[in-house]
Design a protein around this nucleic acid. Structure first.
Length: 575
RNA sequence: CGGGACGUGGCUCAGUCUGGUAGAGCACAGCGUUCGGGACGCUGGGGUCGGAGGUUCGAAUCCUCUCGUCCCGACCA
């Protein structure tokens, strides 16, 4: 491709709307432009990288035995009503009616559609296993789209769905997908970690997320420094504490005036105690009904754990107004005693004695509160976020809590969808069975952002070769010089004819501008034809990542570039 | 949806507090000088100051409403 003909509007300055580096660089390097919140146009360079990632995904999915298809984006409401998700899926499911007043939606995911397709067309165990995937634009009306391609409303996703005859076969498929995912992300040049995850709205019973480690990641994950344990915050278990050998004697319940002291910090400082002697009472609305969740003062409630413990669809932290109006309580002075709503406790609270809580009265706290004597709980369990001071639930090793970007997510779905949609086959005994399903997502467009978060410097993007929009950028440093231009043109022709993705910067610009643009857009290899060529027949090759430069005769330049590309490709995790 | 910030030419921003006929840099077009890390000079085009209403002799500036964007929280590839 000739740069002079390419739509590549690079920006010298960072647009004010971009906060994180991948978003800034995608805009500056002319990869994407925003149409409206969370919706982006891919310019030629952005599309090239997107296609390269797609190609890797296809290769590895096909290699793992999956087949590509393409499913509709507009979906009828009745399918979603059949699965029950028309009600369950929140407002991020964009719903609309067509001209015949039929309720429809834009597909945020395709379990319903694929299950429908399979139930209509697959009837025998002999046709299993079946693993189908597509690469398609999804639409989710995200509450808050942000960070460019990191969380768009419209985004490109690879979603795959597997159908197996039984749990064991589904397990094999799941592991195959897990392997395929590791290969995909490695080939994209992403440093990635698989973590155990909660299954969320998609449903099911087992799941891993693939997290690209990056400080700008939206998720915190929990990884053990000693063993292979890794989980996200929603899943990372905090095992119940060993029961204390001797419980301290229960002291007499005491009321203390704590005027103006609301937060854990304020109350503990005021009373001269540590946060682990205090119990936080958090009011949540569980499917609309208030519930009090108790955790130790130095812990945080993990809403997904609370949701799972309560067995409800949705939990939401009650706002101050809700607490005052609906519950008739005073925020900042909440406590478990005398509550009419259900009270659930983290199991760390279950082993506390003589705790401090709010008194459910303005400016008053209670001391020496004891479970059993002063209040009871309806349920106890793991309700809190893991912290860096917790130890690994698997090996008791030290935990770290780095940030990550979720680029892939795989689920064992079991039979929830096949049962809801009555998708069944006949097994080898002629017995009707629901398909055992799995589903597998990759945020393809998000991978671009993740790759940039992991691979950039002050000058711009440093693309891993397999996903770079071009492999080589050829700079003609003296476009007005006939001889130099002829040399550059010839080299460009040769590289192109040898199948190398080459961007030829033939613009009538000064060298400095070409260097800056080349660095910004992150092409792995840069070859320069300039004065040196005119004087000595030599060209220069510079590697974007290392900055290493070599000078060599024009005659051997194409061979050298091919060899370098080979070396980089095979040095990267092999396909 | 809650909290915060912002909206002035394609981009970055000044001007708003204290009302008085819209600015700079970059980008773009022309000419000239330059030409190996985002050159310089001269000239030129381009702006409903997000929108609507109001106050005022006069509004980018003050008031009301509204739309949009960005950031923080609850969702997720």
């Amino acid at each position: 491709m000739r740069y002079s003909q390419l739509l590549l509007p690079t920006l010298k300055e960072t647009p004010a709307e971009a906060e994180i580096v991948s978003h800034q660089l995608l805009l500056r390097a002319g990869f994407i432009r925003k149409l409206t919140a969370g919706i982006y146009a891919y310019l030629p360079l952005g599309l090239r990288t997107l296609r390269k990632i797609e190609a890797i995904v296809r290769e590895e999915m096909n290699r793992a035995g999956a087949q590509e298809l393409l499913l509709p984006m507009v979906q009828p409401a009745d399918l979603w009503q059949e699965s029950g998700r028309w009600e369950k899926y929140g407002p991020e499911l964009l719903r609309f009616v067509d001209r015949h007043q039929r309720a429809s939606c834009l597909g945020p995911t395709h379990e319903e559609v694929i299950t429908d397709l399979v139930r209509m067309n697959v009837h025998s165990y002999k046709e299993l296993p079946l693993n189908l995937y597509q690469i398609q634009t999804k639409f989710r009306d995200e509450i808050r789209p942000r960070f460019g391609l990191m969380r768009g409303r419209e985004f490109v996703m690879k979603d795959g769905y597997s159908f197996d005859a039984d749990e064991a076969a589904a397990g094999i498929t799941y592991n195959k997908m897990k392997e395929a995912y590791s290969r995909i992300f490695a080939r994209c040049g992403l440093s990635c970690r698989a973590v155990e995850a909660d299954t969320g709205t998609i449903g099911g019973n087992f799941s891993h997320e693939f997290m690209v480690l990056a400080a700008t990641g939206e998720d915190t994950i929990v990884v053990c420094t000693a063993c292979d344990y890794a989980a996200n915050m929603e899943k990372a278990t905090c095992p119940p504490p060993a029961p204390a050998a001797t419980l301290p004697a229960m002291l007499e319940l005491e009321r203390i005036a704590t005027p103006g002291q609301k937060t854990v910090e304020e109350v503990t400082a005021f009373l001269g105690i540590t946060p682990d002697q205090l119990v936080k009472t958090m009011i949540y609305l569980a499917d609309g009904k208030p519930v009090a969740a108790l955790v130790r003062g130095d812990h945080e409630v993990q809403p997904v754990k609370l949701k799972n413990l309560l067995g409800v669809v949705d939990v939401e932290l009650a706002g101050e107004d809700t607490i005052r109006k609906i519950c008739d309580l005073v925020p900042g002075y909440l406590g478990p005693i005398g509550l009419t709503m259900p009270v659930v406790a983290d199991h760390q609270v279950m082993v506390m004695a003589n705790m401090v809580t709010g008194a459910n009265q303005e400016d008053v706290h209670l001391k020496n509160v004891n479970l059993g004597r002063d209040f009871t709980v309806s349920q106890a369990g793991d309700l809190r976020m893991a912290t860096a001071v917790d130890s690994c639930p698997q090996c008791h090793g030290r935990l770290e809590l780095p940030r990550g970007i979720e680029v892939g997510h795989i689920f064992k779905l079991g039979t929830s969808y096949s049962e809801a949609l009555q998708a069944t086959f006949l097994d080898d005994h002629g017995k009707r069975q629901p398909f055992v399903m799995g589903c597998y997502g990759i945020g393809v467009s998000r991978c671009i952002a993740a790759a940039i978060e992991q691979n950039h410097d002050d000058n711009g993007i440093i693309f891993p070769l397999p996903i770079a929009p071009f492999q080589v950028i050829l700079l003609n440093l003296s476009p007005k010089d006939v001889e130099i231009s002829r040399g550059a043109d010839n080299l460009y022709e040769e590289l192109t004819s040898r199948g190398i993705d080459t961007l030829h910067d033939d613009r009538n610009e000064r060298p400095g501008i070409k260097f800056k643009d080349a660095d910004l857009i992150g092409i792995p290899l840069r070859v320069m034809v300039g004065k040196r060529f005119a004087e000595a027949g030599e060209v220069e090759i510079k590697q974007r990542a290392s900055g290493d430069t070599q000078v060599l005769p024009m005659a051997g330049a194409a061979d050298a570039l091919v060899a370098m590309l080979d070396r980089i490709m095979t040095g990267a995790p092999k396909a």
